[in-house]
């Protein structure tokens, strides 16, 4: 079995994380914002798995399971909110929804 150095995995995870962050900052559509956040969280999950593999422990994978479960909960609440917002504002554009300033 060829073992891949952990650093490669972390670089992959880091790249995904940064991509997610860029998406979060650039995108205006709320659904895409939510997706970007999911990417960031899953990148963190991937990093945990690589780290766990390096130490030869299952801890990283256990953490990933928790992350999956929690991000599912987050998305569920998030989508519920987005539905309500669409009801109220008839749009998913983040800037339109954002009325409070100052």
């Amino acid at each position: 079995m060829i073992s891949i150095p952990m650093e490669f995995g972390l670089i992959l995870a880091g790249t995904l994380f940064v991509l997610g962050l860029i998406g979060l900052m650039v995108r205006r559509n709320i659904i895409f914002v939510l997706m970007s956040i999911e990417i960031m969280i899953n990148a963190a999950g991937a990093a945990f798995i690589f780290a766990g593999a390096k130490w030869g422990e299952p801890d990283g994978q256990i953490m990933f399971l928790f992350i999956l479960a929690m991000s599912a909960a987050e998305v569920a609440v998030g989508l519920g909110l987005i539905l309500q917002i669409y009801h109220k504002f008839q749009t998913l554009d983040g800037d339109t929804v954002s009325k409070m300033r100052g």
């Binding site: 963190a44 990093a47 780290a51 953490m63």
Partner: peptide, 24 residues
């Protein structure tokens, strides 16, 4: 609610990634 969702989820992502690196 939406703003808090984005804020908190994003902060969780940062925290998680940080934890992953510390663990690594």
């Amino acid at each position: 609610g939406l703003k808090y969702l984005i804020l908190a989820a994003q902060s969780s992502a940062f925290l998680l990634f940080g934890m992953a690196l510390v663990y690594a």
